[in-house]
Design a protein around this nucleic acid. Structure first.
Lengths: 159, 159
DNA sequence: GCGCTGACTCAAGTAATCCGGAGCCAGCAA
DNA sequence: TTGCTGGCTCCGGATTACTTGAGTCAGCGC
């Protein structure tokens, strides 16, 4: 089997899943829109105000994330108001939560000031704080540094 | 206790850990540099070639990530060559692996083509594939959708 | 010393992103 | 029908990110 670490030049990352993911959410504003969606925001103007970016930027990100299938537009209607669309997470979008959680956790550990982070994640029901851990298919808990890259089905060797 | 989801307008994300994290690695190229570092790359030109971005961009990212403490420069010397510096992950940088892994996993699930991803992560030792899971402080496995945001120590209420 | 190599940098141009402000438009209220 | 509101879009300019190509510079081999 190819040792990916030692023969790093022997294979390409053209079809890397990280790269593909970043094609969808590779901007700062896209990731913040996703964070806001997980914090319950669903309406155009709320995204803009709460994230603190301009409306054209929000419009572009919402359009892209909807086209990519992470969000979907659904109509809503408040009494006395016209029908509008709101943006809700699809299963594909919900599954992105682990990325947001990993980003938040890293920041909690390495980039907070003395007052600490403004929000955390709790397990609904038991209320205990949620964090990400790595686990292998054999059920072992895996620590940072105990992993190694191995070839996947789409590995492309050069030359 | 404040219900963060319902009263989203009552608090601000100025000191959000996600935002702080993105101040360090908020660009596509920074995240790809980190991916490469985890794939064993440590030298300037290798980063540029393997990621497929220009050298000035690599120089800027390496400088930023080093200043932020995710990478450190250490001298190396090949026989018959002058002394050079290579870039290695610090503990702060190593801890970023869960973010890269979460990005890769999301891409593996939602953004691969028919041939599949080129690489995966294995537990060194047992060799089984590694993935991220969420767990609460009580030890429960937590599924996507079973979490809710709760106030942290740095919560800032508006007004 | 001299040339060579390779790591890195500078400069200039292009593309993407973002902001502020103005404007469009649907449809509810009156 | 008219006015109004709010969701969204368009435009022009500023900033940032990135590319290409040329250049600098350290130090090893000779």
């Amino acid at each position: 089997m190819v040792d990916l670490l030692k023969d790093r030049d022997a294979w390409s990352t053209d079809n890397c899943s990280v790269t593909r993911t970043l094609e969808v959410v590779g901007t700062r504003s896209a990731l913040l829109v996703m964070r806001e969606a997980f914090l319950g925001t669903s309406r155009f103007h709320d995204f803009a105000r709460r994230i603190g970016i301009g409306e054209p930027a929000v419009a572009a990100r919402l359009k892209e994330l909807t086209a990519a299938g992470l969000l979907e537009r659904t109509p809503y209607r408040e009494p006395g108001r016209r029908t509008r669309d709101e943006y809700r997470l699809t299963p594909k979008g919900c599954d992105f939560y682990r990325v947001i959680l990993a980003l938040r956790e890293w920041g909690d550990t390495w980039a907070t000031d003395e007052q600490g982070p403004p929000w955390r994640s709790a397990h609904r029901g038991c209320g205990a704080e949620v964090h990400t851990v790595m686990r292998c298919a054999e059920g072992h808990d895996v620590q940072v540094g105990e992993t190694t890259p191995v070839p996947g089905p789409g590995l492309v060797l050069r030359g």
